[in-house]
Structures are given as structure tokens and as C-alpha cells.
């Protein structure tokens, strides 16, 4: 068997799982199971949020290791489910490596929502969060519009905002509070606080918090702490951004 190829397949699977938001234990366990399915009981896998190291010893006693850096982290549940199913399938059938490679390549094409649908999601979520925090119909309408504004920033602003997630969150929450202030001044919304909170809910570090706690639960304390730090950082970015937005708004 071509062990280099197997190593590459395992590393690619782990990398894809990580980049669509899988927990560390899922990445490590999927790769470990895949390698064990191909009769490599001695395989070792180690992953932290942006790095995967996988090492195995061929039956001839030759050790090989591969390291992959995982650049971007998103949350794409459809792809996550797809790769999870693929891993389960590969472990159950143990197909030839060429077929496994082809299946792995084919899994990349998962259905995705069109940009306007994602944008709609960014609008609908704040619109229904506003009533949860005590807003009325008019607050919901303002939150919908401001949410669309933040969605546009997140979807199309990446080129201008760069890859720094702290700065991106600061700017998006500033946009959120500015838009809410504007809409309330125009007479559509009633309460700046409620509309802003509704919109900020799309930026809130719920994902980072949930992931952090799942890592710690699985025993990956190191990754858990790094994600907790991420959650705290995002929360302070939100506070900073919305304060800046309100401060700018007060001038007009």
C-alpha cells in the first residue's frame, strides 16, 4: 500500500473537518479511525485549533509524519456532516486509496446557500431577537434592516476589513450600533438599546463559547482555553465597536 498517499488522505480529511468547525476530538478521532481501518494501529494524531500533526509507522518500520496548518475557521455544518459521513463510510468499507481520494475530492462540492439567502439569515435572526429582549414590531423591523447592513459588511467587506477578526468584529458592531441609532432617529425603531442588542446577537461569540466548552468537555484543555480567549476577545471587540458607534452617532 502507498502509505504516503494514505497519510495525505488522512491529513486532508482532518484539515477539511477542522476548517468547517469540527471539535478537536472529532478531528483526532476521525483521522485515527481512518488510519486504524487501514491497519495502522500505531498511528498518532495530534491537533490544536490551527495545526494538525499526523504520524504513522509503516509495517517495514519506516516512520512518516505530516503537518498541516489550518488557516481559516468557519462554521459550515453541511460540509461537516458530509465529511463525517465520508469518514464513517471509508472506515466501514476500506476502499482502495484511489477511490478514497476521489470521494474526498467529491465531498468538497456540498450545497451552499446563495449570498442573498445568507444575507436574509443575517436580517431575520436580529429581527426575531429584538422581541425576545422586549422590543415591538417596529424594533424588529429596524433590527431587520440593521442586520442586513451588518450582513453586507460581513459578506462583502472581507476584502476591505482584512483577515483580522478582532478588527472585523469592532467595525461590524460599530456599524450595528450606528445603523440602529440612525433608524431610531428616523422614527422607525423605538429603543436604540433593544435594536442594537438584537443586531449584536449575530456577532456575539456564541460559537466560540460553545466550541470552547465542548473542547474542555472532551479533555482538550489547551484548545478549550485558546477558544475561551477567542470568545472573550470577540466580546470585548463587540463592546468596543458598539461604544465607538454610539459615540460617533452622538455627534450628529
Amino acid at each position: 500500500m502507498d502509505y504516503d498517499k494514505l497519510l495525505n488522505i488522512a491529513a486532508e480529511l482532518g484539515c477539511q473537518l477542522m476548517s468547517c468547525g469540527a471539535e478537536i476530538y472529532r478531528v483526532e478521532e476521525s483521522m485515527g479511525r481512518l488510519l486504524r481501518a487501514y491497519d495502522l494501529a500505531s498511528a498518532e494524531v495530534f491537533a490544536i485549533p490551527n495545526c494538525i500533526i499526523v504520524s504513522l509507522t509503516t509495517p517495514e518500520g519506516h516512520p512518516i509524519t505530516r503537518m498541516r496548518r489550518v488557516a481559516g475557521h468557519g462554521t459550515d455544518i453541511q460540509r461537516l456532516e458530509r465529511y463525517n459521513d465520508l469518514c464513517r463510510d471509508l472506515c466501514a468499507r476500506v476502499p482502495p486509496l484511489e477511490e478514497a481520494q476521489a470521494l474526498l475530492g467529491a465531498a468538497e462540492e456540498t450545497p451552499r446557500y446563495a449570498p442573498w439567502q445568507v444575507l436574509l439569515g443575517y436580517g431575520v435572526a436580529p429581527a426575531f431577537f429584538a422581541p425576545l429582549f422586549g422590543g415591538g414590531v417596529r424594533d424588529a423591523a429596524s433590527a431587520f434592516i440593521a442586520g442586513l447592513g451588518v450582513g453586507v459588511c460581513l459578506l462583502y467587506g472581507g476584502r476591505f476589513l482584512g483577515s483580522n477578526s478582532f478588527l472585523r468584529t469592532v467595525i461590524c458592531s460599530a456599524v450595528a450600533s450606528l445603523l440602529s441609532l440612525l433608524l431610531v432617529r428616523l422614527g422607525l425603531g423605538r429603543s436604540v438599546d433593544i435594536v442594537t442588542i438584537g443586531v449584536l446577537m449575530v456577532l456575539v461569540p456564541g460559537v466560540a463559547l460553545t466550541n470552547a466548552m465542548r473542547e474542555i468537555m472532551a479533555g482538550d484543555v489547551f484548545s478549550g482555553l485558546s477558544r475561551t480567549a477567542d470568545a472573550i476577545l470577540v466580546a470585548s471587540a463587540i463592546a468596543l465597536g458598539s461604544a465607538a458607534g454610539l459615540a460617533i452617532g452622538r455627534f450628529f
Binding site: G121, V124, A127, F128, F129, P131, V202
Partner: peptide
């Protein structure tokens, strides 16, 4: 409120690509 929470979560599934 529960209906609102339901719809808000459905809105979020669009963002996280859940089908």
C-alpha cells in the same frame, strides 16, 4: 417569545449552512 426564538434560530441556520 418561543416562536421568535424558533424563527431566529432558523435564520441562523442560513448563516451556518444547515439544510
Amino acid at each position: 417569545p418561543c416562536l421568535c426564538a424558533f424563527l431566529a434560530c432558523v435564520g441562523f441556520t442560513l448563516v451556518f449552512n444547515i439544510h
